[in-house]
Design a protein around this nucleic acid. Sequence first.
DNA 1: TTACTTGCAAATGCTTTGCGAGCCG
DNA 2: CGGCTCGCAAAGCATTTGCAAGTAA
Lengths: 139, 139
Amino acid sequence: MIDLKKICLDKGLRMTGQRITIADIITELGGHPAGHPDVNLIYLKASEKDKNISIATVYRTVKLFEEYGVIEKHDFKDGRSRYEPIQESNHDHLIDIESGDVYEFSNSEIESIQKKIADELGFELVDHRLELYGKKINK
Amino acid sequence: MIDLKKICLDKGLRMTGQRITIADIITELGGHPAGHPDVNLIYLKASEKDKNISIATVYRTVKLFEEYGVIEKHDFKDGRSRYEPIQESNHDHLIDIESGDVYEFSNSEIESIQKKIADELGFELVDHRLELYGKKINK
DNA sequence: TTACTTGCAAATGCTTTGCGAGCCG
DNA sequence: CGGCTCGCAAAGCATTTGCAAGTAA
């Protein structure tokens, strides 16, 4: 598993106590369906480890991590922004509309069709967003 | 072209002057690349026709139209919500990252792959979001 | 030391809502 | 008439920011 704290240090980021706390939380949650925490969840978990941490610091830190390419931000349909550790390979998301859990997938076929569509419309594909929203079958 | 005013009347919505103004504006913009207006643009155009209209009314009206299935709301990566008249067939969007213009497309192949992916993950596909962000080639 | 960080509270930007006045059917 | 709408201003929410005090390197 990726260790955000280490990556941040390697990138020369000054790692304060608060930043270590936040990096650890995102690292711990990463990869699990219940990962992709929003700022509020990170703030709640951070408060358990450091009762003085401010939510403003969480906002500033996730923004910083994002700018340094350490984490990635997603805006699913539930309003608040959610974050996950950066990964080597791109992937898209399937969101469980009942639990909010997030599953990752990637499909090269879709990717190439996307490029083709953009090309046909006269565009260079710069970015994309693909999210599937689903309900779990036979729970 | 779809006429929102007519659709609203058919659905039994009380069409006040403000609602007619807003329906007409969305109808006029519909289908064009510069369509998909946000609330502020609708408000500005509405103000030209009715200088007393309130932005609160625009918010209330687009929400009402959306609830009645007359228009559809999209949240692209630019923050504000954007609206378009409902259409018979589903489609996805390519957004010009420089102008904000929106182009529509649909691709049945992608759709079937999406269903397959959801199925493999144990989900029934309820909704999806596919947006391409591109830069115009050789302008 | 010294520039970078933090906590706090105030300020955003977009959207919603309470209220009293006004309008549609 | 009577309930639905409207304009206005205040309230909400998630997020950002100014400032003075605190801290990592």
